[in-house]
Amino acid sequence: MTWETIAGWGSTALFAVGAFFFFAGSVGLVRFPDVYTRLHALTKADNLGLGFVVTGLALRAESWIVVLKLYLIWLIVIVTGATACYLVANAARGSGLEPWTRERR
């Protein structure tokens, strides 16, 4: 097996995992009951999906500098995504939007 073959199949597997997390994040966005739970789905699943896609692309990248650049982009998305998540949750809490809770007792 050449490196080309290994990188090809390895990256394909990583793309499949990444696509799964993007799909799961979107399903969470559709199914979850309130803003806060939907934020959980978006922030965690989509960032992870992007991480897998970036790692798959890194296996196919033509140079090291491109690999580092791909991970720099992921890092920026993680940091801005988590910050945006806090801002939105903070604003929603500040506006008095109560979180959904399961009925019980």
Binding site: F22, L29, L39, L42, G49, V53, V77, G81
Partner: peptide, 12 residues
């Protein structure tokens, strides 16, 4: 939230 989804997916 959908706009945020478009952002991450758009990057990918």
């Amino acid at each position: 939230l959908s706009a945020m989804l478009f952002g991450t997916s758009g990057v990918a």
